[in-house]
Nucleic acid binder design. Structure first.
Lengths: 206, 206, 206, 206
DNA sequence: TATGAATGAGACTTCATTCAT
DNA sequence: CATGAATGAAGTCTCATTCAT
């Protein structure tokens, strides 16, 4: 069987000893590495275990299956990203908040471009998406609050707008990653233009 | 590994008899169907052959493997799309041209949303992308000509802009497809705003 | 099925028109070529047909199966060889006869070393061997007559001796072919020594 | 094609647990059995695994493919043979050494005639031969030392002589196996005659 | 808990052979 | 007779997952 259906994708145990935490971290990092170097097709549980210096049995001790690995990896990356993105709420205006969000996205992407792109894709698979719903909800909520500022024109559907915004940022930033761009500022500017245009914000962007 | 490394992705033979053409068409359509209903993981050569009502041997007669199937499918869809998109060059202004392009993209996406989204992703995989390079080149050239009109502000890099434009259109349109949107007009409008914003075109869009 | 069991290995029809003869010759030569360049694993009926410039259907018109191809090829080579070897019977002494036989073997092998070696092997497969029995019988008979001369010490078993002689000649000559040797004379000398030693012929060989 | 091109033929992992050693042994013995009863065409990985009482996955855990199986089998047989053959170096004279070598060859062949013959052939296939080069080298060296004794006439090329000797012994011994001979002594005598004749040793062999 | 050998469903692919045109 | 599209049995090989030690 390729993949067992309908099994939990949550980590099996919350590692309480630091030894276990290290194991989990090693496994995730191994998975990340392989994803970056060999792509999705190159990712398999046996290899991950080997690269992590752990037995395959141990891997299954911490992750109930392959998908759980990807979910955990996404969550790891998302957690970092979200911690940065949340700062957007402290910005005084909606536009400043958006810029903050964009900057966080760009930074996230440029840290590990290949990995980010691959995860972006995997997150679309229904089985994975389900587990990442909380993040989507949180992002949507965050964007909703940003759009709520009075310096942002009202949108017909906040839901739709939030989804579009996430998609647009991702698209430009992934495309840049693919091209190997490294200039953060230029990239942020391009994203801003698209986003501000989308939202109907006229006027000068810095 | 799912797929053998480094094998040709080009069709093995061009069908010379009309019976063969039918076979090829049936195979491609079956692949499209499966992609739509069971996703990428559900796509395998045996199932495709079965659904196409041909033997597995026949499939391999025309396609050297699973990836070749995806390539051929992309090319089929791209050909349809490009035929429509090319009309953009007949528009009098750059902005009208872009609208034409957007409309074509939206139409393409709304025809078979799931399929379109899946192919959009697959096309990013390096091995697939290589085979689709001609299409990318053609699209870039088309966009270059559109941006060349004087009603479009000059862009720092045409290449980058072209890539970004393709990515933005795709992103919004795919996101819409995922949500199950069907309102062509509303969708076109949102894409226009993002694109025109990106390009620095100020002023009222309809 | 890899190969149908129990089917005739004889050519299906004796080609009466010269057109058919040419076809058969082309097929055999194509098979020989492929055997030489891609080895046994590279030999398959479709490829042979293609290389012969004939449709696969036509190939089966003349040969009832893959093994029949190999049998026919062996027979073609054997016929040439045997025509030369038979001259041994005209030699005045047994030793001269043997030399004649050796010379014929060496010449045969050096013409197409790789092909000869491959066929030597294939001829051991029971299904092939059956069809080549007449040749073995003829060879055994030929050798029996040579050994019957009074300048050859009597052998305990003519049958065994004949088999051994064929095997020894083949072994040395194939080994030489493998090494890429081209010096006919040196090779003949070595074979003579082994054979004459085997037969208990003492004294000077030229 | 029967076998994937250009993959390693070396065992994938050396069994560290004794359970694994048993598995490997069972697989090799099953392969040997099948080779003896159904020939080369009858050898396939599924059947080997089944006969060995292990899963196909286990087989591939230790052997990357069918050819690796043959290589390992050859090495197993060669190791046994070489251990016996090496004793030839302890003999006082070259001729005694050769007899020792011949006796070892005959014994090896008569143990499992069919298997020996099949392996002899397979070892000629380039891909297999490569892996067995060490054995060939060792044999050549052994023969070189034997021929170095003063009771053996000097040979124009030791390399060639060594190759020929191996080939001659093999040929006669394989032919005997094919005929179902069981008389060790008679066989050894015939080989001796051929070899001594080849080397130019005159005089009475027992 | 950790280990890693074992499992086996299932995907991929070839190629000898047939048969409708 | 020739053609070449179609067939599908038979084989190869992988990898997610389990389980005895």
């Amino acid at each position: 069987m390729t993949t067992k259906k309908h099994q939990s994708l949550k980590p099996r145990k919350i590692p309480s000893q630091s030894r276990a935490e290290q194991t989990v971290a090693a496994i995730l990092e191994a998975a990340a590495c392989i994803l970056e170097t060999k792509g999705l097709d190159g990712l398999n549980t046996n290899l991950v275990a080997q690269r992590a210096g752990v037995s395959i049995g141990s891997l299954y001790q911490y992750f109930p299956g392959k998908d759980a690995l990807i979910v955990a990896l996404s969550q790891r990356e998302r957690a970092v990203f979200f911690a940065e993105a949340e700062g957007a709420l402290n910005e005084p205006t909606g536009q400043r908040g958006l810029k903050h969000l964009i900057a966080a996205s760009v930074r996230q992407q440029l840290r590990r471009p290949t990995l980010a792109r691959l995860l972006d894709f995997e997150e679309n698979r229904p089985s994975i998406a389900k587990e990442l719903a909380p993040f989507i909800t949180a992002m949507t909520e965050l964007i909703r609050q940003l759009l709520d500022h009075e310096d942002i024109p009202p949108q017909p559907s906040i839901e739709t707008a939030a989804g579009d915004i996430i998609a647009i940022v991702r698209a430009i930033v992934d495309a840049a990653g693919e091209r190997g761009e490294v200039d953060r500022t230029a990239l942020e500017l391009r994203v801003s233009r698209a986003l501000f245009g989308y939202l109907g914000i006229v006027g000068r962007q810095p």
